[in-house]
């Protein structure tokens, strides 16, 4: 009986880290998808949240701290997207490597042109704003290539023995993505100037990439549900400008969009904005395949 107890205790305490490569943890699934392609067989990648969750409003579950405790590299979007839940998890993780400023922490937006950096008086009268700019930069696949390069470089820095492999993975990824970016641009070129209303600012980078015109947003202030007055304004705008589409991120409340559809006849396109946001989207390129196909199909 005593031996049995010892075996049980040993089993509990034997680390589950049988994998010998880099243990990578990301906040979002799109970062995880890119990191998986960069790491290849040398990295095991986990995302803390699901693709169907709004990354602004995550509760820091204790299990996240346990996952971070075993990480060699932690990748977060940054730009205050995860400010409400990541800092306390980093403290709780007790992992020296991935603390902010240490070797295993990265916010991979270096080299990206950040949009919608607020100017003038920056306070919360403007809603739940991000003072450093819009953090949804991965909605432009060209930024995904930059992020992939930054992640691959960081992996090479942490695991120089496989540096060539990470570089090669990046080159394959960049080549594939650049080819697909050309295809998506070609397919959507005839929709340039398409007028849309979106729920949140998630589609700003996407719109900037393809020349889609976001005339207004259902959340006229980020993070705050629309007022009745703003809904009236939106109805007028959609009718006046003959807006054909409302783009709705699939983790947001569908009721305001449905109301707009009921009042104006505008089509509501509910879209995933993260990898695994719907079951069929399992890669970063797959996310754009899905979105582009849906937009083309809606026209």
């Amino acid at each position: 009986m005593k031996n049995f107890f010892v075996i049980i205790v040993l089993c509990l305490f034997i680390s589950l880290q049988a994998f010998a490569g880099l243990h990578v943890v990301t906040t979002t699934t799109e970062l995880a998808a890119i990191a998986t392609e960069m790491g290849g067989v040398h990295a095991e990648v986990k995302s803390l949240i699901k693709g169907s969750q709004d990354p602004h409003y995550i509760e820091p579950k204790p299990s996240y701290a346990s996952i971070l405790n075993k990480a060699d590299l932690f990748i977060a979007m940054g730009l205050s997207l995860e400010i409400g839940w990541v800092p306390s998890l980093l403290t709780q993780s007790r992992n020296a490597k991935i603390q902010r400023g240490h070797e295993g922490f990265i916010e991979p937006y270096q080299g990206i042109r950040i949009l919608e950096i607020p100017s003038g008086v920056v306070d919360r009268s403007g809603g739940d704003i991000h003072p450093e700019g819009n953090p949804h930069y991965l909605m432009d696949p060209r930024n995904g290539v930059i992020v992939a390069k930054n992640i691959a470089q960081k992996m090479a820095e942490l695991d120089p023995a496989h540096g060539d492999s990470y570089q090669k993975n990046y080159e394959i990824f960049a080549e594939t993505m650049n080819h697909k970016i050309g295809e998506w641009q070609r397919v959507l070129s005839k929709h340039r100037g398409l007028k849309v209303v979106t729920h949140h600012q998630t589609f700003s980078y996407f719109a900037d990439w393809l020349g889609v015109r976001v005339l207004d947003r259902i959340e006229n202030k980020p993070g705050i549900p629309p007022s009745p007055g703003h809904m009236v304004d939106l109805i007028k705008l959609i009718k006046k400008e003959s807006v054909p589409l409302v783009l709705l991120e699939n983790y947001y409340d569908p009721k305001p969009s449905q109301k707009l559809a009921g009042e104006t006849g505008v089509k509501v396109l509910t879209l995933p904005v993260s990898v695994n946001g719907v079951e069929t989207v399992t890669t970063y390129a797959g996310l754009f395949d899905y979105i582009v196909t849906q937009i083309v199909g809606a026209q």
Binding site: A96, E107, Y109, Q110, E132, K154
Partner: peptide
């Protein structure tokens, strides 16, 4: 036994060195 004391002895990467990715910097 804190590993950070060992870390403190390491050369802090130069922000401007080529190929170095210092991405924890803020705006």
């Amino acid at each position: 036994f804190s590993p950070t004391l060992v870390l403190a002895k390491k050369k802090i990467p130069d922000q401007s060195s080529e190929g170095q990715v210092l991405l924890w910097k803020f705006n």
